[in-house]
Computed example of a mutant assay.
Amino acid sequence: MPLRFKPTAAEDVSARTLVLSLMSVPGRRPQTLAYLSRAGGLFGMEPTAIRMAVTRLVKEGLLESVERGVYATGPKAAAFTAEISDWRNAPARTRVWNGGWIGVLTNHLGRTDRKDLRARMRALRLYGFAQAEAGLWVRPDNLRLSLGDLRAALLRIGLQDDALLIAICETALPASADWRDLWSTNDLKTTYEGAIAAMQASRKAAARLPADDAARETLLIGQSVIRTINLDPLLPEDIGDAALFRQMVSEMDAYDRFGRTCWDKIG
């Protein structure tokens, strides 16, 4: 399924997601429950929903209570914050492509367990694999991860333990089976351009919006762009528009700073 940029709808933001978005920022100071509840109100959330989300995050170690009604990131937040902020480093995860491929063989894994099948397909797509044939998923071998590290990363997010990864240095395929065509360059370019245009338009419009509306919009657009970055297949220049992808990431880095200033105004 091709990527399509679409801003997140306010009703699709959960209380948990909102709290994590506001708290899991490097250097974020402790925040009051009142502030978090007010932020929730911008998305139509009741204070009860925010309190429940905060309570659960404290139990998970992602938040901690520093005093009554005041919360900071918890002991398990460092790794989590690094993970959700890693979108900034997406372009650096790739190297120059030498024409080789990484393949994942899945025929022997079966398709009867629907839960395993969904987890497998999600893991493969998150790392940019596309299905070339029944039982064979491929991607350009342009990631900096070693084959072993890539396999370990896929296993952590749902690929079955007995999946087989192979490095493919040479292929002899029929003309109709060009693996480069498994990804649509035009779809990816349209997605990048849509994300960049949305961020630029949002920054121009913010000056005319009330502070609450501007803050809400930056979170909705920012989440959508970050999702787009994290789901990108990270294709080499020979297949995708890597330069435009880097521009989108750079634009998001600036937009993230802009969004923080908008949220500081409602603090």
Rank of each mutant, 00 (worst) to 15 (best):
residue 196 I to E: 03
residue 196 I to G: 05
residue 197 A to R: 12
residue 207 A to R: 11
residue 182 L to F: 03
residue 178 D to Q: 06
residue 187 D to V: 03
residue 179 W to C: 09
residue 199 M to P: 04
residue 198 A to N: 05
residue 205 A to S: 08
residue 209 L to K: 12
residue 181 D to L: 10
residue 205 A to W: 03
residue 193 E to D: 06
residue 184 S to L: 06
residue 207 A to H: 14
residue 193 E to I: 10
residue 180 R to S: 10
residue 190 T to P: 00
residue 204 K to M: 09
residue 194 G to N: 00
residue 209 L to I: 03
residue 199 M to S: 05
residue 178 D to S: 08
residue 188 L to M: 14
residue 210 P to C: 07
residue 185 T to L: 08
residue 211 A to E: 10
residue 191 T to E: 05
residue 206 A to F: 08
residue 209 L to A: 09
residue 205 A to N: 02
residue 213 D to E: 14
residue 178 D to V: 02
residue 193 E to K: 09
residue 205 A to M: 07
residue 209 L to C: 02
residue 183 W to Y: 12
residue 212 D to G: 06
residue 182 L to G: 06
residue 187 D to E: 14
residue 195 A to L: 00
residue 178 D to Y: 04
residue 208 R to H: 15
residue 185 T to C: 11
residue 183 W to K: 08
residue 192 Y to C: 03
residue 203 R to S: 11
residue 211 A to Y: 03
residue 211 A to H: 09
residue 205 A to G: 00
residue 201 A to K: 12
residue 207 A to K: 13
residue 210 P to G: 04
residue 208 R to G: 11
residue 185 T to W: 13
residue 211 A to L: 13
residue 194 G to H: 02
residue 213 D to P: 01
residue 204 K to L: 15
residue 214 A to V: 07
residue 210 P to E: 11
residue 183 W to D: 12
residue 201 A to D: 15
residue 213 D to R: 14
residue 207 A to V: 15
residue 186 N to D: 15
residue 210 P to M: 10
residue 207 A to D: 12
residue 182 L to E: 07
residue 187 D to F: 13
residue 192 Y to K: 04
residue 193 E to N: 05
residue 193 E to W: 06
residue 181 D to F: 05
residue 194 G to C: 00
residue 199 M to N: 01
residue 210 P to I: 06
residue 190 T to D: 14
residue 192 Y to M: 04
residue 204 K to I: 12
residue 200 Q to F: 02
residue 191 T to C: 13
residue 206 A to P: 06
residue 211 A to Q: 13
residue 186 N to F: 11
residue 183 W to E: 11
residue 191 T to G: 00
residue 207 A to Q: 11
residue 194 G to I: 00
residue 181 D to T: 14
residue 205 A to K: 05
residue 208 R to K: 13
residue 180 R to Q: 11
residue 214 A to L: 05
residue 192 Y to E: 01
residue 203 R to E: 15
residue 181 D to H: 05
